[in-house]
Design a protein around this nucleic acid. Structure first.
Lengths: 129, 129, 129, 129
DNA sequence: GTGGTCTAGACCACG
DNA sequence: GTGGTCTAGACCACA
């Protein structure tokens, strides 16, 4: 598990710590990181990507507080065994409500009808899934 | 052209001034605002939405510097004549692409299938439209 | 003397009233307007160029206070008989000092040497004059 | 890179924030600021020139939106990598054209011949340079 | 430490 | 009436 696992774009509008957390979230959800996997150390990641160690540390801490990672004292951070998927699909959908409402409003401002928007979104989501 | 034209969410992560600029961009692209239309005055918008006039002014100035609006001295701000309104629906849909992509990504992270998300969005958009 | 004598660009960054004053100054300096000439009425100018009569009036008043124009009661505004050219050339050059200093500073910021700047200015001034 | 890099004239008709943006544009075009150079912090500039930090911030933001500067989060603002510095002297001279034209016009209005104006400017620029 | 955003309130320029 | 500029000061996000 080396530091090159992560991709960081320092010029992006998205904060670096959030880039890391989001990537971890995806890597875990996608199975590229499985429970128990050890993450590269803060120092390694910071050195490899030339970012502030505090930023990496902050990302790890945030991921830990979300239950994505767990701290193994003396060994580092590892992917947590506990998953968040215990929530019901309805609860998870509810988390998207603000984004969905914003999207609906924006489409209305653009005088777009529902059909093309839904079609495009469907495509982006891989509608077979 | 009254101040209720704009929607402002003070609690959003997006800065107020940018919410305004983005909305103007969409309203113009969608043709709800056409070249020459006079916008509500800075003071009207500020009063109506209970925000600081300078915040609105900043939005208008930015929109002007982007070529969206033009100043009619002593009369206010108007939708610029040289504007890329009257876009095709496809071009307008493209303006939503980042939001759609983000939504798709988030749904994937939440392990949500396309169907319930599309259904909810469809309802929010008034799917008959 | 009709209203078409003046050119007004409402979209210019230069205030309308100043556009008018500056044009009057030039027209008088250039001899196109000679002392005694009657100017078009405020109402004519305002109507012809679709600007606010108050703006034209303000310009005329300003020109009057500068000694460019004089008010002939019941007849309107006329080019003043008194000229300002009584000043010595040295005094007039002194009026340009701030602009000259600013230009020198800007040229320095651009790492431009004196020669090309002087050459260009000379050309613009019609160096034979 | 200290705050004395910039010159601010609080009494000028040109807004302070624009004075800053224009100076940055020239300093970058002239090569005195090269891509990657870190600018003095908003607080330093504000303190040094006794202006409000927000005024400086506004200037930096504008310069960023123009592509002149880029934000290095947590470190400050730097001259953008994608920049049109290294211009030819001719291109740099062109940036002064509006000022030169205005000066020529004003000299003409003041009935000044080219010679004394050029002489004075030459002196101000240190004509040996 | 860095810049970003917002407020409250003043004053100015323009029409 | 319109928008523009600036100040003083607060709070936040990010590194």
């Amino acid at each position: 598990m080396d530091a090159s696992l992560l991709t960081i774009q320092p010029t992006s509008a998205e904060p670096i710590y959030r880039q890391i957390v989001e990537q971890l979230r995806r890597l875990i959800a996608g199975g590229q990181l499985v429970p128990g996997d050890l993450l590269p150390s803060v120092r390694d990641v910071a050195g490899f990507h030339a970012v502030n160690p505090m930023t990496v540390s902050r990302a790890y801490s945030l991921a830990e507080s979300e239950g994505l990672l767990e701290r193994l004292r003396g060994r580092g951070m590892a992917v947590a065994a506990i998953t968040r998927s215990a929530q019901t699909p309805g609860q998870r959908l509810a988390l998207l409500e603000p984004q969905l409402a914003a999207l609906a409003r924006q489409a209305r401002e653009l005088e777009l009808s529902a059909e093309p928007v839904l079609q495009r979104l469907s495509k982006l989501m891989g509608n077979g899934k």
